[in-house]
Design a protein around this nucleic acid. Structure first.
Length: 255
DNA sequence: ATGGTTGCTTAGCAA
């Protein structure tokens, strides 16, 4: 079983890359972020034609998450359902082939100390609260998405320049760690210990050609699922060439 | 050098 996560930076703008990618890699489940489209305009037919059903939680212009799956997705919920005012479509979860899968688009945070940064930290707290109230560390669960947090300095091309900056600040790293403390493992690090693996490169200033990247897209798994993990790869090829997202997909393979 | 690139929407925001 293959589970992938990919911030596509607009599903409609990315279809010419997403469709051949799905054909090439044939993942069973794909968590998408930044679909940037309201539900009525989601390109459903193009994906169902490839054998995927799309379960979507979108909005106009910004954010938007989805889960593509070959098997039906059941027990679907959208948002945290915690009563907090939140019109931003950033979280969807369902169950497929016996695994609970969530697609999450953690707020970027813009800059340390900004209102958006405070919202990001609060969002991470709400995500932990969702785990506490709605999930079980003993069940097979994968929390996948663009976390907009590089877990440690191995995940940053220039840790000195990025020290205490947004995506690397200790407060957001602690927010991510609180999710792991609940009972989730950064699955990539189960298989790869070295520095220098990135999943996002800024469009600006030749970020990708110069390999100025950060690893901010993650697949976090409970132990029951992590025990079945065979490998995790970041598909840099999907970041290459014309009309690429600024994020590469992360693909986990389970036995 | 407060820049630069991309997407959505169509001037300005978000990333």
């Amino acid at each position: 079983m293959k589970i992938a996560t990919w911030n596509v930076n607009s599903i409609r703008a990315r279809l010419t890359r997403v469709i051949p990618w799905l054909t090439e890699h044939a993942p069973d489940v794909v968590c998408l972020q930044e679909t940037k489209v309201e539900d009525g305009l989601f390109p459903m037919d193009e994906l169902t034609a490839l054998g995927y059903q799309a379960t979507i939680h979108g909005q106009k212009t910004y954010n938007g998450v989805a889960i593509l799956s070959r098997s039906p997705l059941t027990d679907v919920t959208r948002g945290f359902g915690d009563g907090a005012p939140d019109e931003q479509a950033r979280f969807i979860v369902g169950k497929v082939d016996g695994v609970r899968v969530a697609s999450a688009y953690i707020p970027n945070g813009q800059s340390v100390g900004s209102d958006k940064f405070a919202y990001k930290l609060d969002w991470l707290r709400r995500c932990r609260a969702w785990l506490d109230g709605h999930a079980d560390p003993a069940e097979p669960l994968a929390l996948c998405g663009d976390f907009n947090v590089a877990p440690d300095d191995r995940d940053v091309y220039d840790p000195v320049a990025w020290k205490d900056q947004v995506l690397c600040h200790p407060d957001e790293r602690q927010g991510l760690r609180a999710l792991q403390d609940w009972g989730l493992e950064d699955l990539f690090r189960r298989h790869h210990a070295l520095a220098g693996f990135y999943s996002w490169w800024d469009y600006r200033q030749l970020g990708f050609p110069k390999n100025r990247g950060l690893r901010i897209d993650h697949i976090l798994c409970t132990g029951a699922l992590a025990a079945r993990s065979q490998d995790v790869v970041i598909d840099r090829n999907a970041r290459k060439g014309k009309d690429a997202s600024d994020h590469a997909p992360v693909i986990a393979t389970f036995g």
